[in-house]
């Protein structure tokens, strides 16, 4: 598969415009870019949902949340005492 028509610089450079490879197949790159774009948004949602579910499962109960807040509080107190 040819990567483009550019194979020599000893030509009238004014006639050359695009210098990237696979010139002429921009439509395909556009479609790929759209796919990557949509995939990224959906993937971020999926990653975030799995993290959220994990936290909800582990810490969603009132007791767990209370103990977590105590843990943060204890951590801050330790820091304050350290200072």
């Amino acid at each position: 598969m040819s990567r483009g028509e550019l194979n020599n610089w000893i030509v009238d450079l004014a006639d050359i415009s695009s210098i990237y490879i696979f010139s002429g197949s921009e439509g395909l790159w556009f479609v790929l870019c759209v796919i990557v774009f949509l995939w990224f948004i959906l993937a971020i949602y999926r990653v975030e949902k799995s993290n959220q579910d994990k936290v909800d499962d582990e810490l969603g109960s009132k007791e767990n949340l209370n103990s977590l807040i105590d843990l943060f509080h204890q951590d801050n107190e330790e820091k304050d005492n350290g200072n």
Partner: peptide
């Protein structure tokens, strides 16, 4: 995005 000006171009 498919314009030739949206990539390296002399």
């Amino acid at each position: 995005p498919w314009s030739e000006f949206m990539g390296p171009n002399l």
